[in-house]
Design a protein around this nucleic acid. Structure first.
Lengths: 234, 234
DNA sequence: TAGTTTATTGAACAGTGTTCAGCGGGGCCG
DNA sequence: CGGCCCCGCTGAACACTGTTCAATAAACTA
């Protein structure tokens, strides 16, 4: 029964061409400025045809985002498997930064483009992302177990710190927001090294869910400035 | 000639009511899902009337963003003026984090909401933002001059690292993306402390514009992953 | 060949940001 | 005070957007 297979193959080919066109257009013009009609025009189909492949424009983004996270995972996995745990953590997070450069079209869509739809709980790729985060966390745990990071350090906190820190230079670098003479790679490396050095210095060991918040001496309150603020029911 | 003044006052009041309505609606529904018609309906004007106050919907955002940065600046200035330079740096960046909590509607609009228009070079508030960054940089420079940070440390790099790191917990906290038992304030404090500790450890001194990029041993190339990826002509 | 499935389409709907001729009620001058 | 003019504002439209759906045509099954 080769007919069904060929049909599925054809269908998959059209689906891929939609994603290819969308990815190119999203990178070129930003998610906001790409319309279903433009994607359809590029692949020479009617706008309505896309709706038999994706339920909505947002789902085209979600499919691309999932592909992006799978590719990011490939990058990180390729960097992993080093004997020294600290080397591995360093290499994996450097792979994250490298991904931001080498798959700029995905990275911008996943982390930079602000016109992209919100990632919600029911997104298919969310479980995969959580799995990636868990792997990253366990790699840091190995550093703690080996005494490279101070014992008592919370691996997940360190992971969050590293992620937040590395995202900065990745965004700055991919957006070319640096002054002409500055080197985004060197900046990214220093961000990584500063954070790792801070973790090794042991200040992160104080984190615990039950720690009282008041972290610093209070600053002058600006009570009147927060007036008139309402909450939303997301 | 009090008539002109009253007219200007009335006009300013309408302008403010537009910004108030927009700010509330943007926080409640997100920039993407708020239309000019909805803002106009809330202030009981026709949609076309808004265009005599703002050239476009994007400019309503830009005005709000500028107001947001001015309020952020007030927060930071209120936290500044401490005798100990390190205390001051700490307090100013903590003020940045506090701003993200106390002016959530501005912070979300400025840093979180991904459906917001891109900030370009010709934005009016960009000069003000650059000025804020310069102040932040000079505060770090004082730590270097006083020997708290290792001599040779690049103040602007440290500022970028701090900004990237602090933005993480601010976003996570404002988005409630943390597990139930975790404390966003404690996380933010640790991120700040880890970064400061890393800077004091002195690894940031290696940054220089002319440093060769190759910072780490190379990772295995993922050549097949980058196949089929095209670049855009931005 | 006849019937069925199904991918694809053109046309439409509801909504968007934006523009513009024209209305009308104020302020200014004779 | 009366007439003019200015200009804030409106209603209606334009050119888009994402999305839906009956109808078509082509491909496959029997």
């Amino acid at each position: 029964m080769g007919i069904k297979e060929r049909q599925d193959r054809d269908r998959q080919a059209v689906r891929d061409s939609i994603l290819d066109a969308a990815r190119e257009l999203f990178l070129a013009d930003g998610y906001r400025h790409v319309s279903i009609r433009k994607i359809a025009e590029r692949i020479e189909y009617s706008p309505a045809a896309l709706y038999s492949y994706f339920p909505s424009k947002d789902d085209i983004f979600y499919a691309l985002a999932e592909e992006g996270f799978r590719r990011l995972d490939q990058h990180v996995r390729a960097a992993a498997g080093r004997p020294d745990p600290l080397d591995e953590v360093r290499a994996c997070w450097w792979a994250y930064y490298r991904f931001s450069k080498e798959h700029r079209e995905f990275f911008e869509l996943m982390f930079v483009d602000r016109s992209v739809p919100q990632i919600t709980e029911q997104w298919t790729g969310l479980a995969f992302v959580h799995q990636m985060l868990q792997h990253a966390s366990s790699r840091i745990q190995r550093c703690i177990d080996d005494g490279i990071f101070p014992s008592g350090t919370n691996a997940e906190v360190v992971m969050h710190v590293l992620w937040a820190a590395l995202t900065g230079p990745a965004v700055i670098g991919s957006g070319c927001r640096l002054a002409p003479g500055e080197d985004p790679d060197a900046l990214a490396r220093d961000v990584l090294e500063v954070t790792l050095a801070g973790v090794r210095a042991g200040v992160a060991t104080t984190f615990a869910p039950c720690t009282p918040p008041a972290p610093l001496s209070p600053v002058a309150p600006v009570s009147e400035a927060s007036a008139g603020v309402r909450r939303h029911d997301a």
